[in-house]
Design a protein around this nucleic acid. Sequence first.
DNA 1: AATGAATGAGCTTTCATTCAT
DNA 2: GATGAATGAAAGCTCATTCAT
Lengths: 198, 198, 198, 198
Amino acid sequence: MNEKFYSLKKEKQDKMINGAMQVFAQYGYRHSSTDEMVRVCGVSKGLWFHYFENKSGLYSFVASYGLKYAMLELSMKPVRSGTDYFELRYHIEECKMVMMEKYPYLPLFLGSIVREEDPDVEELIREPRAKYAGQLSDIMMQADYSLLRRHEDYLLLIDMLDYTLEALLADAYRSSVFSAGRYLMEVRKHISAMQKLL
Amino acid sequence: MNEKFYSLKKEKQDKMINGAMQVFAQYGYRHSSTDEMVRVCGVSKGLWFHYFENKSGLYSFVASYGLKYAMLELSMKPVRSGTDYFELRYHIEECKMVMMEKYPYLPLFLGSIVREEDPDVEELIREPRAKYAGQLSDIMMQADYSLLRRHEDYLLLIDMLDYTLEALLADAYRSSVFSAGRYLMEVRKHISAMQKLL
Amino acid sequence: MNEKFYSLKKEKQDKMINGAMQVFAQYGYRHSSTDEMVRVCGVSKGLWFHYFENKSGLYSFVASYGLKYAMLELSMKPVRSGTDYFELRYHIEECKMVMMEKYPYLPLFLGSIVREEDPDVEELIREPRAKYAGQLSDIMMQADYSLLRRHEDYLLLIDMLDYTLEALLADAYRSSVFSAGRYLMEVRKHISAMQKLL
Amino acid sequence: MNEKFYSLKKEKQDKMINGAMQVFAQYGYRHSSTDEMVRVCGVSKGLWFHYFENKSGLYSFVASYGLKYAMLELSMKPVRSGTDYFELRYHIEECKMVMMEKYPYLPLFLGSIVREEDPDVEELIREPRAKYAGQLSDIMMQADYSLLRRHEDYLLLIDMLDYTLEALLADAYRSSVFSAGRYLMEVRKHISAMQKLL
DNA sequence: AATGAATGAGCTTTCATTCAT
DNA sequence: GATGAATGAAAGCTCATTCAT
């Protein structure tokens, strides 16, 4: 990418980033077209390629940027929630809702980055994606696992929870108006359900 | 589609079906190109359109065909496993391994059909997709849920299991050589783990 | 073309010739497709190319054949009509109606041959087309032009009549049921109109 | 069509319009290929589709444009020729020669538009085509028909003249170098011939 | 910096033609 | 002799990318 991108007004940078996030989050790397981004955020076709060598360069930038921003947000919010696994997990979802204030499609995009398998970009995002996954797992490592560990295969339960929350998030975006409040309520409900099981 | 397709030698029909399944399963509807299918199964570009009106017609045929074949396979194998939920679930995965003998990419394709969201084909596959889902749930309905129901939120556990098995399958395809045996062993391990929890 | 075509049963020869005439007459050389001919007369695609090297070969054969048949028909019917220009002209249209008994689309096809400009076939049909035009003009030469010649530019009037009759014929084919009787009546009316002018 | 087409330099607009006219006029709608237009006027394939949704959209635009331009030209030139039918008719041909300065293939194209029967475009050009025909007939309505009407079937004579002039035009285009002067001379000759008849 | 006109490789689809049966 | 499955060149059209302004 062209470093001059950072010399743009922050406002415009974010307009472009948001446009790219929205399109990439909804359609994935390959399906996202330049024309769609022009339509969504009104920045000319040529400008995208002025700052980003090509489509994969743009994707890798926006993905890295989004992942970094998410990591920042996650590290900013102090984790008041102590050592309870499920509180920590809820905390992460709360953080996502905060990210949305600046980058409304970032939470959805994060999930789509994780699932992205296109060979054109997989390599390029491997590292930041792994870092992000690492930070998430670091946060979760703060949990007191002694209770969970009583269950020989507690790792599976954890996976299940992750899948469920991701599905809830996708559903929330599908509804015409995304409501952070409603989403967090759903999250709370599902987490509690699982807690009772143990 | 052109009914004459069925007059082809079964061998050739299957070569085409397998080629289409492989490409569609890996790249999804939109991404899959005729050229890729030519490369994969050596049948000329023109012939695809001789038998199938267009790309969406081809997809809808192969998807319906695969779903039907899966349903047949599922109904053929007698369910000796009685009423145990987890045995039934394992049974389904066993059936998928049987399908692979004729259509190696069918298990992967089935998952991709379920996820397919392209408006060009969603309508066309809605019905068979729903039927297939129906049969799966019919099989699982044979289970004795009295034990599961002790857990207020047992439905979540079930979802978790489904997600896990799907992920295991995708992993198995990713490895250079798909081993049905290894896959079933993994499945068994995970199912058992969950059983112990309850 | 392959001379063996003539060894086919006359019935089949004519089925193919009529199919080709119908399609070529309606759509012209370039627009006419093998598939359309298969649909129209039920003779397999391969057979067309078995007897006729390629599409232009088929066109040139059917055109030549049709022109020859028309010339035969024109020379068969004795011209009882004497030397009146307009009677002779009417006689020709009567002959066309006779041709239709064996080759229903021939009169329409004759007109389309004359207009055909595709470089792939123009050369190939030049000679028979010219011969046919020659015979027509020979017939018309039997007329006593002394009356017409009083008009310095009588040649133009003749052209006009030709154009008009061709248009009437095209109209007759456009109506759902071609009626030879109705067509001849129209022809008579128009010819008379012109006769009165002179 | 994309309105931005009008923002192109007039020169380029005309280069494209002329290219399309030339190809469409010679081969008709169905036969005309994008590749041919690329060859003829050196504008890339993609650009045609950037400005015109598809081939029928392009045809309908160029046809409407050509018809409008012809109508403008016809209405610009004051009809000094009074009420003589044949002078008016000659005047129209003169106008066509003026059009050729900007759009050399327009006169030929006008004729081909009138004959166009492809269902993909017939609907799209029906209205402007009818308007153009209307204007032509309006012009001819200025004629004093009292003389013509003496001939019971004067309408046929008129048709004849139209057919003849159209044929002369087509001939003129067929010769390697189109000469407006030579064409007008031919037109004059034929018109005079007919005048003498009456 | 910013635009969007322009390009051409690539995709879906058509169709004359070939060939195994 | 007869079929129609099979092919591939070419057509219509899309889209990432370039470039003149």
